[in-house]
């Protein structure tokens, strides 16, 4: 009984270690191929367009509403101290340092990560990935590298947009609905928020981009078991991607003191 339990734990741990190792190797290869010519710009742009451009609406919506709710909640809390003017720094700092990168990461993982996993999973199961190999094209170079590059470059840009829409959303609620003076709203942001705060968030989002792309590619790449397997790959990539984003967010926050 106990042995069985221990074995189960061992197998599970083995699986986790294996997955982590394979993912790290895949990421390593993808990064290597990013610097070894020939680099196919067309594929990279295609993925950038998919990951970045097509996620803009989702990110703007998420950012705006998060900013709005932050403004509303912090207003209610800060009103007790008569510190309503601190609403805007609360919104801006939360967006820039934490919520901008994390929410962008989660939303894009849900949108683009699952789609990537589905696409690669389908390619795996219909032997398209094998076909690439037989045509002497490295599938990691052809499929994973552009996606990782797209993740790394597009996540920070999406985060900037999320940050900005968050502040705008907070402005709408704070200034238009709750009656904070608009000059106070913008002025206090300038008092409390620095460019470092934005870059702090952008650094995080770089990592999230790598995580999302790698996890999605990994799940798609090693999908098996027919249509159900593709579905599992998609779900798995979203779950694992989201968890890794939240975990790494804590890690990064504790490592980057500034």
């Amino acid at each position: 009984m106990i042995m069985k339990f221990l074995e189960a734990v061992g197998r599970r741990a083995d699986g986790v270690v294996n997955a982590t190792g394979s993912m790290a190797i895949m990421l390593g290869q993808a990064v290597m191929f990013a610097f070894v010519p020939p680099v196919k710009l067309r594929n990279i742009f295609k993925q950038m367009s998919f990951v970045g451009v097509e996620s803009v609406y989702v990110v703007i919506l998420t950012g705006t509403f998060t900013g709005m709710v932050l403004a509303l909640q912090s207003f209610n809390a800060l009103k007790r101290f008569g510190a309503e003017s601190l609403v805007s720094p609360t919104v801006a700092l939360s967006m820039a340092r934490e919520l901008g990168p994390v929410l962008t990461g989660l939303m894009v993982t849900g949108r683009a990560g699952s789609a990537m996993a589905t696409e690669l999973g389908t390619m795996r199961l219909t032997e398209q990935i094998d076909a690439l190999v037989t045509m002497a094209v490295n599938p990691v170079r052809y499929l994973v590298t552009p996606r990782v590059i797209a993740g790394v470059t597009m996540f920070p840009l999406l985060t900037i947009i999320a940050d900005f829409s968050g502040v705008v959303g907070g402005y709408v609620v704070g200034v238009k609905f709750l009656g904070i003076n608009s000059a106070v709203y913008t002025g206090r942001i300038m008092d409390f928020v620095t460019v470092h705060d934005i870059f702090y968030g952008l650094k995080k989002s770089l990592v999230f981009g790598v995580i999302t792309a790698t996890v999605a590619c990994f799940h798609g790449f090693y999908a098996k078991g027919g249509a159900e397997g593709v579905g599992r790959a998609a779900t798995g990539s979203v779950v694992m991607g989201s968890i890794l984003i939240l975990m790494s967010d804590y890690l990064l926050s504790s490592l980057m003191t500034y």
């Binding site: 219909t126 398209q128 094998d130 076909a131 190999v133 037989t134 045509m135 094209v137």
Partner: peptide, 29 residues
Amino acid sequence: NEVRKRFGMLFQGAALFDSMTVAENIGFP
């Protein structure tokens, strides 16, 4: 990969790339 360039392979389900046109598929190699 050098050896593979001397090969061609037709897969069971043809394994055409869904995201490409017929011409892009054939011209891919």
